[in-house]
Write a protein that binds this DNA or RNA. Structure first.
Length: 496
RNA sequence: GGUGGCGUCGCCAAGUCCGGUAAGGCAACGGCCUGCAAAGCCGUCAUUCGGCGGUUCGAAUCCGCCCGCCACCUCCA
């Protein structure tokens, strides 16, 4: 690990700050997780992929990352949906927790160290409320407990929203429940009998939303920790309230660095069911999109910028991923061949490109996770590498090619887009073994690829072309490579 | 009304904090390679960064004004 940490944009100071963890090399990260009332959508996954990039990058950078992501498994929407569906809250939550984990796996998001659930930390939340009541930071109204925002002097430090300037919405007006100040928020909600509730000294009820993150982060890390992640929409009021209730209870600085990921929009507009532009990962997958292309698109735009998710952007991401994989594959092939005498010119050229890429890629990510910039530097190496691999009979030195491969593997520890499922088929034809490989397809189609190699060997180009057209019909493109053809899937990216 | 952000090549998108004369990807076009392709390579592709002023030897980057777009504003990542 280099001694100087990366610079990250801290929402608190609104500037880039050098990361200085409380107890290096450990970095404690708490990331707001999903409320499990529905299938996660692609916007959720932009955020989850980003938390993964933070996780993987800091790990790559030598930190010992301790990532905790909560699961909100009790809230108004969950209760509502469970009732509609006629299932228990637990079953509903369980179903969407599974969907969430499936999505993480699809997008190659590393598991967090733990996924604490709100319903498993009710006791800690009750303790926290009692502490706040004792310190006069909270008050009870008919079984509801509210946090008294006026009692916390620094309220608003994160988002700089001034109470008088806030737009009054119906939601605020309709949700008073006897609050003394509109800014006050529920720590504990008295609930009608019949709805799920937990016993507490101030009456049966269930916890307010903001409380769980304070309670669970404290359970994991104590009163103060390094880095708190969340979506842009959570800064206010969720995180503002977390700070207020946590610091009021502990008198400690709750979090050193806050980072927020900007939202994703679809075709230039906010994703919403009424606009018909609501996309879930499961739908995108079912439509035949490469998960790596989705991941690439989600991480290729700087996290503090809105990302416009379109079919065209997805296609472009797919093309970019194909290029990376193709170059990596060519490199592996060359390393395996080990033929030709190393050319000093090629070696020198590639060496320079590698060193530059190593330096610039890391520098870009160090500068507030500039993934777009980092990818730009990566592609400069890709071009040089391809050019050098094209110099037939004058390969770069083997050790250097191995070093380049090692570096590509290393950065893929962050990007996680190189790996692609493949299948291979072969056939004995006369005295030669014919081979073909590509992404998994139907065996009979793979057979046609082999038939085509035979046709080409026999110079029956008419048949070869017919077979190629036939395969193209079903979305498979064949690339000739002597007796070992490759195929790839034509870009089938479409979102729905 | 308040807060945050954005407007850079046909499309996507860095660069703006720390001013020095426009990364990268996709697409397109010409060439090499190929039986033909694909992939890859070589070359072409923004005298210009929403507009207008200002500061400066020099501005996409700093300052002012204006235009347009997006998001958030009390339980949506």
């Amino acid at each position: 690990m280099s001694t100087i940490g990366p610079r990250l944009h801290n929402t608190l100071s609104r500037t880039r700050e050098t990361l200085e963890p409380i107890a290096p090399p450990r970095v404690q990260i708490y990331a707001c997780g999903p409320t499990v009332y529905d299938h996660p959508h692609i916007g959720n996954f932009r955020y989850f992929v980003w938390t993964d990039v933070v996780h993987r990058f800091l790990q790559w950078r030598g930190y010992d990352v301790d990532l905790v992501m909560n699961l909100t498994d009790i809230d108004d929407k969950i209760i509502e949906r469970a009732e509609q569906a006629g299932v228990s809250i637990g079953d509903l939550a369980e179903k969407f927790i599974r969907a969430f984990h499936d999505g993480l796996e699809t997008l190659r998001i590393l598991p967090a160290a733990s996924y604490p659930r709100a319903t498993e930390h009710i006791a800690e939340m009750v303790d926290l409320i009692e502490k706040l009541l004792t310190r006069d930071h909270a008050y009870v109204v008919e079984g509801n407990v509210f946090f008294r925002v006026a009692s916390f002097e620094d309220y608003g430090q994160l988002t700089h929203l001034v109470a008088d300037e806030l737009q009054t919405t119906d939601r605020v007006q309709g949700d008073e429940f006897g609050k003394r100040d509109p800014r006050d928020f529920a720590l504990w909600k008295a609930v009608p009998p019949g709805e799920p509730n937990w016993d507490a000294p101030f009456g049966a009820g269930r916890p307010g939303w903001h409380l769980e993150c304070s309670a669970m982060s404290m359970a994991a890390f104590g009163g103060t920790f390094d880095l708190h992640l969340g979506g842009a929409d959570l800064a206010f009021p969720h995180h503002e309230n977390e700070i207020a209730q946590s610091e009021s209870a502990t008198n400690e600085t709750f979090v050193k660095y806050w980072m927020h990921c900007q939202h994703l929009i679809v075709d230039g507009a906010k994703m919403s069911k009424s606009l018909g532009n609501f996309k879930t990962l499961a739908e995108l997958e079912a439509a035949g999109n490469d998960p790596a292309a989705i991941r690439y698109l989600l991480l290729s735009v700087h996290y503090r910028r809105q990302l416009n998710f379109t079919d065209e952007a997805l296609e472009q991401a797919h093309a970019a991923v194909q290029r990376l994989r193709e170059t990596y594959r060519r490199l592996e092939e060359r390393i395996a061949e080990r033929r030709g005498e190393a050319s000093p010119t090629a070696t020198e050229r590639l060496e320079r490109a590698l060193h530059q890429a190593e330096r610039d890629f890391a520098a870009a990510l160090d500068d507030d996770l500039n993934t777009s910039g980092a990818l730009g530097h990566l592609f400069l190496l890709v071009r040089e590498l391809n050019a050098v691999l094209d110099l037939d009979g004058e390969p770069p030195g083997l050790d250097l090619m191995i070093a380049v491969r090692a570096w590509l593997r290393s950065i893929d520890e962050i990007l996680a887009v190189f790996e692609a499922p493949t299948m291979s088929v072969s056939r004995q034809h006369e005295d030669t073994e014919l081979q073909a490989s590509g992404p998994p397809i139907d065996a009979t189609l793979a057979d046609l690829v082999l038939d085509r190699i035979v046709a080409r060997r026999e110079k029956d180009f008419g048949l070869a072309d017919t077979l190629r057209d036939q395969l193209k019909e079903v979305g498979i493109e064949v690339e000739d490579a002597g007796d070992a053809a490759r195929w790839k899937l034509l870009t089938t990216t479409r979102s729905t």
